[in-house]
Amino acid sequence: MNNSNILSINVGTPQQLQYNNKQVMSGIYKMQVDEPLFLSFLNLEGDEQADLKHHGGKDKAICVYAHEHYPYWENLLGRTLGLGAFGENLTIQGWIEKDLCIGDVFKFGEATVQISQPRQPCYKLSARYNAPDIPVKMQESGNTGFYLRVLQEGYVKRQDGLTLLTPHPKGITLAFANQIMHLDKENSEGIKRILEVDALSSSWRATFEKRLNGLETDTSERLRGQF
């Protein structure tokens, strides 16, 4: 399938959250918007992030989450969830992580966007739902969502949907990347395959390069110990 419906476009500004007896700022609360918005290289018009070290920026201009995962979380949390429940900018229907690859390029209204990495779930999700295990559950399930970088700016609206323009030739799915990042951490061949993707975000590239270096160092030391 070359198209996906967008059920909602969600934007918001940082608000205070209570977490572990501390006040933290987060942009996880979003409001649905139906009018056209300008999508820049950094974010959607009206959207802001509180922690610019881990969120936002050119590699993470848009956060996307599949509505197909909502029943899993509603069952786990014991509540009905509205669209944008995970702080995503786009709630989509039709694609999940196994269907999409890092580097895939899409048409989105006047804009052109590209998948840069799976979402890295953080504790702000735990704070919103008072459920400490959400990040781990998200990693283990693979239901993480993903980030888009913007290749061409322009106005976008919900009715535009996402249209696949160019599948990335390496074919590294988001599901595979999540598996290697969170579960099969010592799979050096898998890491090398992911690092071959030129469109991989700088943060995930740095993490995998560091991990691969550690694995190769350990292997070299074990080999030296045999002689």
Rank of each mutant, 00 (worst) to 15 (best):
P36G: 11
Y29C: 09
E35D: 12
Y72E: 11
K30D: 00
G84C: 06
K53R: 14
D47T: 06
T13W: 03
H54M: 07
A61M: 07
M25I: 04
I62M: 10
Q23S: 15
P14K: 07
N20D: 15
L52Q: 12
S26F: 01
Q23G: 07
H67S: 13
G78Y: 13
G27W: 00
G87C: 05
S26T: 15
Q16P: 02
E74P: 06
K58C: 08
H55M: 02
D59N: 13
Y70E: 02
K53T: 13
A50P: 05
V24G: 06
K60G: 03
D59F: 08
G78R: 07
V11K: 02
E88C: 04
Y70F: 15
N43P: 01
F38R: 13
V11Q: 04
P71S: 09
L76I: 14
K53Y: 14
D47C: 07
H69I: 00
A66G: 10
V11P: 01
F86H: 00
H69T: 02
G78T: 08
L42P: 01
M31H: 13
L42W: 11
G84R: 01
D47R: 03
G46Q: 09
K30T: 05
G56Q: 03
E35L: 12
W73D: 02
P71V: 08
H67R: 11
G87F: 01
S40C: 09
K58W: 08
A61Y: 05
P14R: 07
N21M: 08
H55Y: 12
F38G: 07
G57V: 04
H67V: 10
D59E: 11
K58I: 10
R79W: 12
M25D: 15
Q16M: 10
N75W: 04
E45M: 11
I62N: 01
K53G: 12
E74G: 09
Q32V: 12
V11C: 05
R79V: 14
L81R: 03
R79D: 12
V24A: 06
K60L: 03
A66W: 04
V64Y: 00
G12H: 03
K60A: 03
K22D: 15
M25H: 07
L77W: 07
F38T: 11
F41I: 14
I62Q: 02
Y65E: 00
L44Y: 06
E35T: 15
G87T: 04
L39A: 04
Q15H: 15
A85T: 02
Y19W: 15
D34R: 14
K30H: 09
